[in-house]
Structures are given as structure tokens and as C-alpha cells.
Nucleic acid binder design. Structure first.
Length: 614
RNA sequence: GCGCCAAUAGCUCAGUUGGAUAGAGCAACAGCCUUCUAAGCUGUAGGUCAGAGGUUCGAGACCUCUUUGGCGUACCA
């Protein structure tokens, strides 16, 4: 995928410029051991072959994680050195283990020859102690890094049409856009979130025309409908009418021309209906936690697009057909040709996108602009980027399409004509209602201060997690029955962990004084689950870095799930507040506090609201 | 036709970028609430990683072909 490769180029290794206080500890431990093993390997080869070159030629030493924690924390596969050393990898592992075991200058840890691997069980006491210092100092910023700190990244997402309400596909777009923005910010980038309102074009005229014919002056107030739903009703009406009257499409095309020519009546209707839709959309955004730093409107950028196309024609980048339409030849990139301006002079989707890109770079010069747009539009962006490049904009190379897959239903694609589109507002309301029922069923109403707000937060967590569990590039199936389940690998499961820890912390606060003078002793955290928790906490920053590099929020989702599941088991099996001794209580509470902090930080990256109680 | 993308348990998805016995959730079955929130925990069962070749010490991952599905190839957006 070219956009991840792009970011990789622009992403210095986060470990090159690790500043003080910004510590990625597990990485350091890994690097330290890697250097040690590598040196020993070369030393051994030098003794045996009189040179260590063969080792370097065979390939770099790789560090991995053993499949099971009993096997240690780090693994060095030695297969690739077998040939040059003329020794079985099992034997190399043993030799290295024995040689290294004799050294006194190594960090604490245990060496294991595990078949063809040399494994290391690292000393986690020191790590846990250091983690505690770092997590409590950094708090909400724990896990962030500065790998993109010099970068200004604009992220475009959502981009609704003003002729209908948002549906499930938009929700995926919004969730990805918002999450990717948060992840890039956590990697230190300066992020500018922009929306583009598709408020002009023949499809907009369709709902206007139908309203004009059948609307009878209906308004959101008079009908009690949310503005976007009202406008959407007439868009649907148009397609019905279109079937009966073949001239409908022509009439819509005619209206578009009127609109571009500034017909006052058409403009007034357009403004009115746009406003209704935008008010409705604003509500949906507010519910789903979506926000933007800037809005762009097609109606304001299409003229620039038209002008640019005309200039391109003069410069000879484009050409004109006899009927007056303007085209670009795409044979240099193995495509056919593309129309940029209709024969009647009205602009197209791509025309305005040219204008929008140019005005954006002028408004907020970026190092990178990421378009979060469905994969169906890969061709569109390929062409758009090529056009801008041909027009001579140097920043055209910094444009990237984060193409995400479609959201399908179990029985196939969503089709508006067949009424199988999942409406965003309805879905959200349904989820909220489900959450509320759940709260009542569990008899939690007395504990929860604001049941309404909590229900919404649970609905939002469920929705965002459902949408962000899947790698954005892949198509996904939205199963309504499954999406409203709050058990298992779901947003509420994750929220529940945060709520239970919070509850525990409230109880601990009452007795905190008794533990004031007990120091955190990480050596007491010797359980398997405790070691694993420490390691996971330590590796959070790497998950953020990886999610940023791949523009993939699912990496955070799956990190969150791993952490939650591990914690859940730990919490189920071992007492925390009622641990055997006060120092052990202190140690476990400290660990759990770190888990909570990481949960909160991770929630924020994938749009899961944190709940103190649920 | 051409181009792009995908195929992993009955279903929905992971799979550390080529390493050890392919993992979760849902659904099914069997257990666990006088104990820090049972939106939880444990166990059982479930796999020819679409198929065939190839590269490699080593392939679910890389290459080729085949099959199946999706998307695109609009003077729609």
C-alpha cells in the first residue's frame, strides 16, 4: 500500500531522536540484548573462521517474541548463520548461551537455548520500576512519541453529500479519520482535520427538484424530522419519480446549470436545504464524537477548479474536444482519458477536487495530505494526483489516498434503492437504547449518575470499536445482531475493564493513607500475568508507532483487547486490594494504576469513551 | 475485456511484515456469583490457511498459474 510506504519514508525511526523522558523501554532492552548477541556471534565467528564478515553477510540478527512466555521474552533465531558457521542452529544457540553465561558485564536476565533459538528472559523488576516512574510522570501522554514532530499532516475525512443523512459507510469513514488523526498526533505530528461538504452537483439538485415538486413547503419543524433525514426523504422520492418520468434526470441537469449561473430561486432553495442537512449532520457528528479543524465546501472550491482546468488547457496539459468538453490524456499512466469539464461547462467531482486541493495547500501548507476515502475511488485519486502533478504542483507527491474497504451486510451490499442502508442515527439510537436496557437489567441505575450519557458512551464505544477492529483496507461485514452484542470482543468489554479498575481505585482511595509509606516494590510482581502486563504496558508506545506507520487503528484496537483480556484474567484470579500483605497490595495497585492509564490513553486513540462507572 | 483488491474455524476477524504446536470473539456444549462490578472467568469441540506449482534451512505470509468473490474502468459522486 503506497501510503504506508510513504509515511515510512517520512518517518524517522522513533528511536533515533528519543528525547529524555520519552522512553520506550522494551525497545531499549531489545536493542541492548541484540547488540550483545550480535557481538558474541561475531566474536565466535572470528575465532572459528578468522573473520566475522560471514555473519554480517548472512544477514542481520533478528529479534522476535517467543510464542510462549515460558520460553522467555526475547528470541533470536539462528537459522541463517548455520551455513556460514557450518554448525546446526541448535548448536549455535548452545554455544552462544554458554559463552554469554560466562560474561559478567551483561544486564540481568537469563539465557536459554531453545532449539534453534537463543532466548532471553529479561529482568522485569527494573523495567517495572522504571515504567512506574515514566507512566506516572507522563500520564495521558504516556505512549506518545515525536517521530512525526516536524510533520504537518492534513487529514480529510467524512465528506458527506448534502442530499441525505449519514449511513454506516460514513461512520466507518469518520471513525477511521478521527482515529488516524489521533494516532498521528500521538506520533507527534501536527494534524489538521478537514471535511469537504459535497454540496453541489447533480445529485444535490435531485433532492431539490423533488422537494420543489412534492415538498409542499415541508420543513424540519413542520415535519418533526431531523433536517438531513427530511432532505434524504426527497432524494429517495426523486429516484421513484425518475422511474416514472424519464425527463427527471434532464431536469436535474438543467437545474445544476441554473445553479451554476446563479438563478436566485434555485440558490435560495439550495441554501435552505443545505442548511437543513448541515444542521442534521452536526448533530450526528456531536453524537459520534467527530470534529474538524476546517470545513471546505465544494460550492466554494469548484470555481477555482474550473479556472485551474482552463489554465491547464492554455498550458497544453489538457485538451478540448469539438463539443467543448475538456479532457486529460492518461495514456502516460496506462489509463485512458478523463473528462474534466462537461461540454455545457459545468464542473464535475474531479474538477472541484482539483480546486479544493489547491486552496487547501494555500490555506495550510502541509507535508502530507491524507484522503480517507472508500476504495471504490482509487481510480479517482490516481487520476487526481496525476493531474495535480502535471499542473506542476510540487506538493502533488505528498497526497495520499487512505483507501478503506466497503461495509457490507451479511446478505450483501448496502443498497439505498432496496432500503438496506443502515442509517447512522438510527443505529446509534438503537445501540444507545440497548445499552440503557442493559444497565437497567443489571440494576446499575443507582450506581451510575447519568444513565443517558453513559448509555451513549457505551453505544459509541461499541460502534467505534466494531468499526476499528478491522484493518481499514479490508472490506468488512456489519452484522446488526453481532454489533449490538456487548459481550466478548466488543467496545463495552474494554470499557468495562476501565470501569472496574476505576471502581477499585475509589475503594483504594479510602484506605490510601495506610499505604502512604510503603514503597512500590516491583520484585513482588512475580506472577506470570504480572510479568505479561508489565511487558504489554512497556510496549504501548510501539503499538502507537506501528499504528501510525501503517495508518491502521486496528493495531491499537487489538492491543487494547490483549491488554484487557490479560487484565481481566489477572483480576479474576488474584486479589488486588485484598492481597496477602500490604506491600503486595501496594505493588498490585501500582500495576493496576498503570494498566488504567494505558487503557485510557488507548481508548482515546480509537474513540472509546472512558467510563468511571458502567 | 483490461486494471486494482481480497480468500484463514459454521460466522466475524487477528496473525508481530519469512520463524517455534495458526490465535481470538460469536454461535454450540460443560462449569464458576455469601469474595475488589458475571458487560466477567474457565474448559470442550471446531483448520488440507480456496487449489496447484515454485523460491527457502523454514511459507498462512513471497512469486506464477487456476478458481471464486468484490470494486473500478461515467460528461455520477
Amino acid at each position: 500500500m503506497f501510503c504506508s510506504r510513504y509515511l515510512e519514508e517520512h518517518l524517522k525511526s522513533p528511536y533515533d531522536n528519543t528525547s529524555e523522558g520519552e522512553v520506550i523501554m522494551m525497545q531499549q532492552i531489545r536493542e541492548t540484548w541484540k547488540t550483545i548477541v550480535e557481538q558474541e556471534l561475531i566474536a565466535y565467528a572470528t575465532e572459528k573462521l578468522e573473520s566475522g564478515d560471514a555473519i554480517r553477510e548472512a544477514g542481520p540478527l533478528i529479534v522476535q517474541k517467543p510464542p510462549k512466555s515460558e520460553m522467555g521474552d526475547l528470541a533470536f533465531p539462528l537459522f541463517i548463520y548455520a551455513k556460514v558457521l557450518r554448525t546446526a542452529p541448535q548448536k549455535i544457540a548452545e554455544i552462544l548461551r554458554d559463552r554469554l553465561s560466562g560474561r559478567q558485564d551483561l544486564p540481568a536476565g537469563e539465557l536459554l537455548a531453545a532449539g534453534p533459538y537463543l532466548n532471553v528472559r529479561v529482568d522485569l523488576d527494573a523495567l517495572a520500576q522504571q515504567l512506574y516512574a515514566v507512566v506516572s510522570k507522563q500520564g495521558d501522554s504516556y505512549g506518545t512519541n515525536s517521530s512525526l514532530s516536524q510533520k504537518r499532516i492534513m487529514v480529510e475525512f467524512s465528506c458527506p453529500n448534502t442530499n441525505k443523512p449519514l449511513h454506516l459507510g460514513h461512520l466507518r469513514n469518520d471513525a477511521i479519520g478521527e482515529s488516524v488523526s489521533a494516532i498521528l498526533t500521538a506520533n507527534g505530528a501536527q494534524v489538521h482535520k478537514v471535511n469537504l461538504i459535497n454540496n453541489r452537483g447533480v445529485h444535490i439538485c435531485k433532492s431539490m427538484l423533488a422537494y420543489q415538486k412534492f415538498g409542499n413547503g415541508e420543513t424540519p419543524q413542520s415535519s418533526g424530522m431531523k433536517g438531513d433525514h427530511l432532505v434524504g426523504k426527497y432524494y429517495v422520492k426523486f429516484s421513484q419519480w425518475e422511474k416514472e418520468d424519464p425527463s427527471a434526470t434532464e431536469q436535474a441537469q438543467e437545474m445544476l446549470m441554473q445553479w451554476e449561473q446563479g438563478n436566485p430561486e434555485v440558490l435560495a432553495l439550495w441554501k435552505q436545504m443545505n442548511q437543513w442537512t448541515l444542521e442534521g449532520l452536526a448533530q450526528t457528528y456531536a453524537n459520534t464524537g467527530i470534529s474538524f479543524d476546517a470545513y471546505y465546501y465544494e460550492s466554494e472550491t469548484y470555481m477555482l477548479g474550473k479556472d485551474t482546468v482552463m489554465q491547464g488547457l492554455e498550458k497544453g496539459v489538457f485538451y478540448q474536444e469539438e463539443d467543448g468538453s475538456i479532457w486529460i490524456d492518461l495514456t502516460p499512466i496506462n489509463l485512458d482519458k478523463k473528462v474534466l469539464l462537461r461540454k455545457d461547462g459545468t464542473s464535475l467531482y474531479i474538477t472541484q477536487d482539483i480546486g479544493t486541493a489547491i486552496s487547501r495547500h494555500a490555506d495550510w501548507p502541509f507535508d502530507s495530505l491524507i484522503y480517507v476515502v472508500a476504495s471504490e475511488q482509487m481510480y479517482h485519486f490516481k487520476v487526481l494526483f496525476y493531474i495535480l502533478k502535471q499542473l506542476g504542483y510540487s506538493w502533488a507527491a505528498d497526497l495520499h489516498h487512505l483507501s478503506y474497504g466497503m461495509v457490507n451486510l451479511p446478505d450483501g451490499k448496502m443498497k439505498s434503492r432496496e432500503g438496506t442502508v443502515v442509517d447512522a442515527d438510527n443505529l446509534f439510537d438503537e445501540l444507545t437504547q440497548m445499552a440503557m436496557n442493559e444497565i437497567k437489567e443489571k440494576d446499575r441505575e443507582d450506581e451510575i449518575k447519568d444513565v443517558g450519557a453513559t448509555s451513549k458512551a457505551i453505544a459509541l464505544g461499541a460502534l467505534n470499536y466494531y468499526l476499528l477492529q478491522v484493518n481499514p483496507t479490508k472490506d468488512m461485514v456489519f452484522n446488526p445482531a453481532e454489533s449490538i452484542s456487548f459481550n466478548g470482543n466488543t467496545g463495552p468489554y474494554l470499557q468495562y475493564m476501565g470501569a472496574r479498575i476505576s471502581s477499585m481505585m475509589r475503594k483504594f482511595a479510602a484506605v490510601q493513607d495506610e499505604y502512604e509509606n510503603i514503597l512500590f516494590d516491583s520484585s513482588l510482581l512475580a506472577l506470570h500475568e504480572e510479568r505479561e502486563l508489565v511487558k504489554l504496558i512497556a510496549v504501548f508506545g510501539e503499538a502507537i508507532e506501528e499504528a501510525g506507520r501503517n495508518l491502521n487503528p486496528a493495531i491499537i484496537s487489538s492491543y487494547l483487547y490483549d491488554l484487557s483480556r490479560l487484565f481481566s484474567k489477572y483480576y479474576h484470579d488474584y486479589p488486588i486490594l485484598r492481597a496477602e500483605t500490604p506491600p503486595l497490595v501496594k505493588a498490585r495497585v501500582t500495576l493496576v494504576t498503570m494498566v488504567l492509564q494505558v487503557l485510557r490513553n488507548a481508548y482515546a486513540l480509537v474513540g472509546i469513551p472512558f467510563l468511571e462507572t458502567m
